[in-house]
Amino acid sequence: MRTLDWFIVVVYLVWMVWDGLRRTKNVDALEGYFLGGRSLPWWAVGLSVMATQLSAITMVGTTGQGFNDGMRFLQFYYALPIAMIVLSVTLVPFFHNSGVYTAYEYLERRFDAKTRAFTSLLFLGSRSMSLGVVISAPAVVISVMFGLSVTQTVLVLALPTAVYTMFGGVQAVAWTDVKQMVFIVGGLLAAVVVLIVGLPADVSLSDALHVAGSTGRLQTFDFSFDLTNQYTFWSGTIAALFLFCSYFGTDQSQVQRYLTTKSVDEARGSLLMSAYWKIPLQALVLLIGVLMFVYYLFTPGPMLFDGRHDQALREGARATEYQALQSRFTDASDQRRAAARAFSAARAAGQGVDAAQADLRARDAEVRGVRAEAQRFVRAATGDSSYNDTNYVFPTFITTQMPVGVVGLLIAAILAAAMSTIAGELSALSTASVIDFYRRFLRPEASDAHFLRVSRIATGFWALFSSVVAVWAASLGSLIEVVNRFGSFFYGSILGVFILAIGAKRATSNGAFIGLLAGMASVWYAASYTPVAFLWHNVIGAVAVVIVGLLVSEIERQVRGPAASDARARA
């Protein structure tokens, strides 16, 4: 990194902290701190929702996914616009009109304190751990770019974010998110421009896209119905619908954001912004990965994008084996480049296109095979079983191929993506712990000033906790997967409880609580004993909660009589 790039990164960090801190002057009551006085405009909240959802893992991981597998991951987001409409019609008016601070608070009004406390506890447990992963995954990659240790990088990400979130509350989070979103989109567009300009003079954009398409990297629709395949049209439109309804409708980090708007229609407007822009934005991120694939197809690139492992293996005990693998990679890449040029020539001539395309596909499969072998080699040589080169593709491209200035802008964009997610999650964790536990069970009568102090301490505590988890997760790679799987255990189940809350007047509190436990048990069984892909776990969890919840409620009504069961069951 050059001086100008460092300058851009430092200016970005200082600007964010300053901008966040200047919001503190409007924060003198709990509603101002947690809900921005319910006065934020829909467009700012909409951008904030999108910024929180777009993490640094998206910037570094999804671009790498586009490089390796192409755009098929886009199918994951196809249900999002429909989920936004469903939520705008159902949960949003319930939350907004009930004047709650947290989504779980609503569950006590409808059911009982134990259902509220349990769902909130699930949120705190899973979110705090996954926040550690959200910090850890990019920190590991950014530490390579900055030449810092992982602990130092975690501090660079978490400390400034914690400072403005602690003092500025949700207003600071939302308004910094708006600026961070500008950085993210600006950085992504700059990357696309550099990638297109960087194509060889004799390769047009159309040629490049035809080459990418021929290797399957522009596939955005897979209509096969396979429950074990994560990314198909059906899992993206049916199973993901449940995931997005759960995430945007019951996860405090999202619900809190649209509670900051002044009316139900403004809250709906903020969600519909994601409905319009999420798929195109995600397509842009994946397209960057695809363009990097084309770039490195015509320009010799590294076998492993993680420079540290590459260097260690070149100098290690198995250097000869590694060099042999490197030679195979160079040969396979040269042959693929020749095949790509032959394919473009065949297209231009209008003959022999099918044969040239088949050859290109075969050569590409060969290169992919050698890269996969190299990654297995790293895992065996270093003992790091979770090593994945995918996350290093975009950062390596930025630091080695981008012009000065754009490097700084893109690193600031990655930091922005990380910080917007961290800030949103910290604010949500603080709100849930203070409102659902401290104020509910410990000090219900305390003053707003007291709660504000406690909220700031809670924000600081969660920042410290997630940072420690981040450093720990960096050294225990496999933990990341455990945390991600843990989260998927109850997303659908929590959605099921909310479906019972607003959609089933006959559901009782015991029915909802037992249904929730049954839903989580069903998901655990599906995850442990069936090959069903995790997206479908959301459907399994939600359906199990609704069925078991209604059954238990009906049994309770029969045993105790309708009057006793209905005591709390009000819609």
């Binding site: 886009l74 705008s88 896209l209 399957g216 629709f221 519909l272 397509a283």
Partner: peptide, 30 residues
């Protein structure tokens, strides 16, 4: 039609257009 209902219809129409464009993109370049 209320304002919100027409907003929802607009979202669905744009959604279908985006999916159609992506499908055409995949078919054209594959």
């Amino acid at each position: 039609m209320s304002t919100m209902t027409s907003s929802y219809v607009r979202v669905v129409v744009v959604w279908l257009l985006v999916l159609a464009a992506l499908f055409a993109f995949q078919r054209y370049f594959s």
